[in-house]
Design a protein around this nucleic acid. Structure first.
Lengths: 324, 324
DNA sequence: CTGTTAGCGCTTTCAT
DNA sequence: ATGAAAGCGCTAACAG
């Protein structure tokens, strides 16, 4: 069933059917005739035919490191929640941070004339070192959450994670005068900004910073163990990720520390992980849902050639629970 | 840049270019000429043009309840991991269990001639009550994980969750002779099979079953509290979901129980949640990755019109940790 | 306002 | 083996 069939049965031309389908002005009588047939067969025009004609597939893509990470699945969920009711299909790409994989996904997306893409996380900034990729993206609308791509049409949506950790460190400083350590996860620009927030606050207080790094998000117990060994009198551990805080807490409990009393522990993301430990976790709320919502809305504005903000910065807040 | 441009520059016809792109036989000389131009521009044929011609977009869809649930994101991840290197784009659909949303997604997918769909979870079986939807799906390849759709081409991949909980209950019975309760989550066919596994094992041991139900996966603390109140001498709680076990454990610890000693707690899914509590959780391993892998591989076989198994049943196993 | 017609980029007969 | 031409389903410019 295609518009020819509909046109024939309604006794009109295909362009009238097309006009009907695209809400253009046609005479009421014809409109009724066409509508009757369309409804009768519950006809939905092929997105392929239209796609080829107008070079758009009503499809957008969300590129993430790994959809299994709650931060990314939250993002993907919100984007789908906003855009799928508007007829967009949402393609999900797990790049795992590999340049090869990322560029392959991008090729594949451009191949179907994807209407827009959302790059989630500052990890994707490495693409700025691939001018041929940027060139291929051309003027396809791009929204970067916590990142920036040097393409023609790019909107950036940030949460100020420097401030997030800075504020959190200030908060912790207000609760203890003892040693405060920081566990940094990964080495993205975002992770560096967070670390700098910690360093700045610590420095302003004339204290000594203790930074421990991990590359695997499940390895939180390792630096925690090191911290316990290096500084048995540790009073607080600020973590760059909730999962890390969770591991740290479990490790500290095993070592006999009372969380929230002997030692304060904080996380980052204010994710559901915060409520999974016996001691609920105080965390930097970096507004995943809000930021993803803005990404989705902005992307749609870009696609529709409406005005849009090229840069939005959100203030994180502190979600206080029991661990600090 | 399209095949006409390539053809012109290579001095051949478009059909020769098309043949080159589709690995059909062409004379070595021409092949070389075409290849040179294709490589020069790193030409990738438009999926839209091809899509219209052959009615396939090299796109598959994964329909889940909610991608934020780790079980579903694990599934989506694995399917993308297998299929995206083969050139498939993976569309993600969060139906939230709503019939309206599901059918809208399905319409949208069929509209782009999606090559295949994976329905994850027995929740989607409700679609069998919508004959018009099934009819629309027609002979589009469908794979159901833990479910079944009455469409022309459907492959089912199951994990025997009755046996999973049955075995787990037997295991728990071997460790304690006290009261064993079960916390059931939701009311899907799968949840019922699990509950029956518990009931069967309990019955075979001539013990009294205690089943508590919840509809929200985060409500594990509620039935746990009830259990503590009803049966202070509870010896084990078997949960239908890891997250429920996690809440139960936190609640039990608060009440002063020693997990793994005073009371055993088990989960279902053997997800990463099992390692997030201070006491790691013994759980039924229902092989998410394996099952998703089979879904992806089977779907590809169906799409390629190769032979495929219409039904695969996997045996769950028990992942023993500290909580039981 | 309506219909005719020419694409959109590719695949696929069907002659050559 | 190769190329010309038709066709996939739709949109849009253009003529009426």
């Amino acid at each position: 069933m295609n518009i020819y069939d509909i046109a024939k049965e309604a006794g009109v031309s295909i362009s009238t059917v097309s006009k009907y389908l695209n809400n253009k002005n046609i005479k009421p009588e014809l409109r009724e005739r066409v509508e009757a047939v369309v409804k009768k067969y519950n006809f939905k025009p092929s997105a392929l035919g239209r796609g080829l004609a107008i070079k758009s597939m009503k499809t957008i893509a969300v590129l993430v490191l790994d959809i299994r990470d709650p931060y990314y699945s939250d993002t993907a969920f919100e984007i789908d929640r906003v855009l799928s009711p508007k007829g967009y299909r949402v393609i999900i790409c797990n790049t795992l941070g590999s340049a090869k994989s990322s560029t392959t996904y991008i090729d594949s997306l451009l191949n179907i004339n994807v209407d827009g893409m959302v790059f989630v996380g500052s990890v994707f900034n490495f693409l700025n070192d691939y001018p041929d990729v940027l060139k291929k993206i051309g003027d396809t609308p791009v929204v970067c959450s916590n990142g920036k791509l040097n393409v023609k049409r790019c909107s950036e949506v940030y949460v100020d994670d420097f401030k997030g950790v800075y504020d959190m460190t200030k908060y912790v400083l207000s609760k203890t005068s003892g040693k405060i350590a920081y566990i940094k996860y990964f080495n993205t620009q975002s992770a560096n900004r967070k670390t700098n927030g910690y360093l700045k606050a610590i420095e302003e207080d004339n204290k000594t910073p203790y930074v421990y790094c991990i590359d695997n998000i499940n390895d939180g117990a390792i630096p925690t163990e090191a911290i316990i060994k290096d500084h048995a009198d540790i009073k607080a551990i600020i973590c760059g990720e909730d999962l890390v805080a969770l591991s740290a807490i479990n490790r500290l409990i095993k070592a006999g520390y009372k969380i929230g009393e002997d030692v304060l522990v904080t996380g980052y993301n204010a994710s559901k992980y915060c409520d999974l430990s016996s001691v609920h976790i105080t965390s930097v709320d970096n507004k995943v849902q809000e930021i993803s919502n803005i990404c989705a809305v902005t992307l749609e504005q870009m696609i529709d050639n409406k005005d849009y903000s090229t840069k939005v910065v959100l203030e994180p807040s502190i979600s206080i629970k029991e661990s600090a």
